[in-house]
Each structure stands twice: as structure tokens, then as C-alpha cells.
Design a protein around this nucleic acid. Structure first.
Length: 228
DNA sequence: GCGACAG
DNA sequence: ATCTTGTCGC
């Protein structure tokens, strides 16, 4: 798929934050999302050794699924190194270069990108999903396994139950239960989608497990890429 | 000021 | 993210 050229790379956290502030205005957050995407891609990254600093070996995987059957349409993996130290709020800069490489190798252009992490549920409203959205132009959502920013009440115990994720007086995401009596996930929009559609998409991708089928596939693929 | 902090 | 044994439940 077509991916925009990567911007100048930051060498300090301050520079990285400046890039987020500069790209944020490019987000489209008022557009309705893809209610019936034909293809949905999941992205995930696995690390070899210690995932703290720069230079660690990593593998970025993208798996494209047919949304109707959840069957694999295409896969792509790229190996590289962590491009930035892990700093909460600047997480995207670690895996962005390798993820973009994997996306570029795709012949399919997915209708939706499901990212591991967050979209606007971020200190500067510009998490990984937002960054990938701006660089690809494709609708993106973020699905996190734990909370990062914001406060929330526990959603009901049944699949489909939700509660708003609030930060700074605004709704930045939604806490969504994808399975009865199982820890919920944290959904936030990245680019070109609304929150209702994002949650609908996540439920469609979780017929049997807590995490979206897309991320589960990508997780396995990236993990295997580091082993063999 | 202190602690918490996506992956 | 990754390092790791056993254990409870469907």
C-alpha cells in the first residue's frame, strides 16, 4: 500500500513531542468510520531482548483479514531495531519505521488499521494509531490492553458493555468489554473514524477472544518472525 | 513534591 | 515489550 514518507526523525523527547504537535492538526476526527470495511489489518510488534532502550531487535507484523470471514487475506513482516527509547507518550517512535516498512510491502490497502495501543487517548491526543493514520491516510483505531490516560468506571460485566474514558473533561475513548466477565479493552479513535464505529468494529473482530482477531494474528506473526 | 506511566 | 511454574476452568 501507499505510505507517506517518514518525517525527520527526532533525537530527543522534546523533538518527538514537537512532531506530535505538528502532525495533530492533520487528523480527521469528524469523519464517520468504515461501518462495513471489507478488509481490516492488525499491527503488532515483538521484541527480542530488553525492550527499554534504542537498538533492540524487533519484528513488526501486519495481518490483513477479510472482515466477513476473518480469514487471512495478506501478511507482511519486517525486522528492524527500536528507533527510540521507550518513553510513555512517545511510544510510537519506537516501532513506527519498521511498522511502515511492513505496511509498504502490502499490496492490499486495508479499509481499517487496528493498532496495538492508543489513538487520541493520549497526553497530547496523538497516540500510535493517530500517527499511523496521518502517515497512511487510512482509517485507524487504537485498542489498548491497559489504561494510559483518563478515568473511567468499570463497564458492565457483559460483552458489549461500555463506559466512557474521560480525560481533561473530554471523552477520549471507551472502555469496552469484549467477553463476558473478562477484563475490558480500551478503544480510542486514531484517524478518519468515530468512536461508535470503532467499537462496533472491535466487537466484530472479537467473536471468541478478548483481543481483536487482527491483533492476535499479528502478535503471533511478529513473534514467529523473531524465532525463525 | 511524589507517583504513575500505551508497548 | 520480555523474563517464567504451576494451576484453575471450560
Amino acid at each position: 500500500m501507499e505510505v507517506r514518507d517518514l518525517h525527520a526523525w527526532p533525537s530527543t523527547p522534546a523533538e518527538a513531542e514537537a512532531i506530535q504537535e505538528r502532525l495533530r492538526p492533520m487528523l480527521e476526527l469528524d469523519a464517520p468510520g468504515p461501518a462495513k470495511p471489507r478488509t481490516v489489518a492488525g499491527l503488532d510488534v515483538s521484541y527480542a531482548g530488553d525492550g527499554g532502550g534504542t537498538g533492540t531487535r524487533l519484528a513488526a507484523a501486519v495481518v490483513v483479514l477479510d472482515s466477513a470471514t476473518l480469514h487471512v487475506v495478506e501478511e507482511s513482516v519486517a525486522v528492524g531495531t527500536a528507533a527510540f527509547p521507550y518513553v510513555p507518550g512517545l511510544f510510537a517512535f519506537r516501532e513506527l519505521p519498521t511498522l511502515l516498512e511492513a505496511l509498504r510491502d502490502l499490496k492490499t490497502t486495508p479499509d481499517l488499521l487496528v493498532c496495538d495501543g492508543f489513538g487520541v487517548a493520549h497526553p497530547r491526543r496523538f497516540g500510535l494509531a493517530c500517527h499511523l493514520g496521518v502517515l497512511t491516510g487510512v482509517p485507524t483505531i487504537g485498542v489498548g490492553k491497559t489504561a494510559f490516560v483518563g478515568a473511567y468506571e468499570p463497564p458492565g460485566r457483559r460483552r458489549g458493555d461500555t463506559s466512557p474514558l474521560l480525560d481533561g473533561g473530554q471523552v477520549v475513548g471507551r472502555v469496552l468489554r469484549t467477553r463476558d466477565d473478562v477484563k475490558p479493552v480500551f478503544v480510542s479513535v486514531g484517524h478518519r473514524t468515530d468512536l461508535d464505529t470503532a467499537c462496533r468494529n472491535v466487537l466484530d473482530l472479537t467473536p471468541g477472544y478478548r483481543l481483536p482477531e487482527t491483533t492476535r494474528r499479528a502478535d503471533r506473526l511478529s513473534r514467529d518472525a523473531l524465532s525463525g
